[in-house]
Structure formats: structure tokens, C-alpha cells
């Protein structure tokens, strides 16, 4: 079995051992969404208007919540050190880890957003656009929050610092996604913006793992 397959199998085993890790962010997302009508008004027109934006922000927060400790357990039990000795570039392994994280932790989060959409009576065509933007944008978001997690690995008192450090970098993604949602509400063409969003994700997914691997190296104290 190749290293890549074994890594994915290991991730699956880890999830099977602690399935709660998948459900907590989903739980958080639905809880936050339930708070919105309580804080605002149960008026469905108003909810539908801000609903997609609320879901986007809540999903962003849930994603940050479960990416914050992405490398923590692998760091403390020495798996990351073992990575240095494999005959693969560290950035490639980091990329795999991020892909696995996206598949097993972020994707479930995206798949649950239609329920949140129903709760806030978001119109169907906007909901579809919302799903597409989340699919296209979350790879970039996962990469950046992974970088935040890697940078703060070595400090015991970092708290939510990794999140705070990376959040400003999400601005272009949020703006473009919001643009898509606004156009979907109008019924105008969303494709150009989606293409830009996709381009951002692709570039982030190729370059950020390199930065993440540098951050991991410096925390392990290996030669760089």
C-alpha cells in the first residue's frame, strides 16, 4: 500500500475512533443558525434576505473551529516528525492531510447547510448557489486555517490565535462568495465570480501547503 493510501486509511480510522469530532462543528453550525431568528425576528422575509450570508459566516466559523487543532495531535504524538523521514516532500504530505481534512470534516459541514437554509427560509436557487460557493471556496479556507494551526503549533498558550491570525486573509473569499449570492438572488450570471473564486482556491491549494510545511518544519526544529 502506498504512503498516500495509508495516510487516508489512518485518517478514516481516527475518525471511526472519535466520530464526535465530525458532529461537533455541524452541531455548532445548526445552533448558531437557530440563534439568528431568536436574535432578530421570526419574520421569514427578513430571514431569507440575510439567511445566506448568515449561513456563510456560520459555516466559516464552524470550519475554523474544527481546523484550529488540525496538526495538534499529530504533532504531540510525533507523527509529524515521522513525515520528515518519508521519501515524499513535506508539502505533498501536508496537502494530503488537508485534502483528507476537507473530505472528512469540511464536506459534512457543507452537506448540512441545506438544512440551515430551510431553517432560515432561503430560496432554493440561492441555496444551490450557496452550496456551490461553499464547495468552491472551502478548499482555500481549509488551507489558510491549516496554516494558522501550523504556525501556532509550538506555543502552548496560543488559544484561538491561529484563527485570529488567518481570518483577515479570508476577506477576498467572503467578498467573492457574497457577490455570487447577490447575483444568484438577482438571477444574473454568477459564473465569472465563481471562476475567480475557484482560481483563488486552486492557487491557495497549491501554494499554502508549502507555507504550512515550512511552519511545521520550524516547529519540529528540523533543518530547513
Amino acid at each position: 500500500m502506498s504512503i498516500e493510501k495509508r495516510m487516508l486509511a489512518r485518517e478514516l480510522k481516527l475518525i471511526a475512533a472519535r466520530p464526535g469530532d465530525i458532529f461537533k462543528p455541524m452541531w455548532f453550525l445548526i445552533l448558531v443558525i437557530s440563534m439568528v431568528p431568536l436574535a432578530l425576528a421570526p419574520d421569514s422575509d427578513l430571514l431569507a434576505e440575510i439567511g445566506s450570508a448568515m449561513i456563510w459566516v456560520a459555516t466559516l466559523l464552524a470550519l475554523l473551529l474544527n481546523t484550529e487543532h488540525l496538526f495538534q495531535s499529530d504533532f504531540s504524538d510525533g507523527v509529524l516528525e515521522q513525515w520528515l523521514f518519508l521519501d515524499r516532500p513535506l508539502a505533498w504530505l501536508v496537502g494530503l492531510k488537508l485534502v483528507a481534512h476537507w473530505l472528512f470534516h469540511v464536506l459534512p459541514l457543507i452537506l448540512i447547510t441545506p438544512i440551515a437554509g430551510l431553517m432560515l427560509s432561503v430560496p432554493t436557487e440561492v441555496l444551490i448557489a450557496l452550496l456551490i460557493t461553499l464547495f468552491v471556496a472551502t478548499p482555500a479556507l481549509t488551507c489558510f486555517s491549516g496554516l494558522g494551526a501550523a504556525l501556532t503549533l509550538g506555543s502552548s498558550r496560543s488559544g484561538i490565535l491561529g484563527v485570529l491570525v488567518m481570518m483577515p486573509l479570508f476577506v477576498p473569499v467572503v467578498i467573492l462568495a457574497a457577490g455570487v449570492l447577490i447575483r444568484a438572488t438577482d438571477g444574473s450570471d454568477t459564473l465569472p465570480l465563481l471562476a475567480l473564486l475557484g482560481a483563488f482556491s486552486v492557487v491557495a491549494a497549491t501554494l499554502v501547503p508549502i507555507a504550512v510545511s515550512a511552519a511545521i518544519r520550524l516547529n519540529i526544529g528540523g533543518s530547513n
Binding site: L151, T152, G154, L161, L164, V165, A211, A214, A215
Partner: peptide, 22 residues
Amino acid sequence: GVIGLRAAIQDPDQAGKACGIL
């Protein structure tokens, strides 16, 4: 973020490199 990251990491060399990446 840069200021906070440096404050969170004790070893100055390591903090410097982490800030550099950021």
C-alpha cells in the same frame, strides 16, 4: 496577527520565522 504570533511563541528564532511566514 503578526504581533500576537510573536508574543505567543517563546523562542525568539522560532517566533521570527513563524512571523516571517505569516
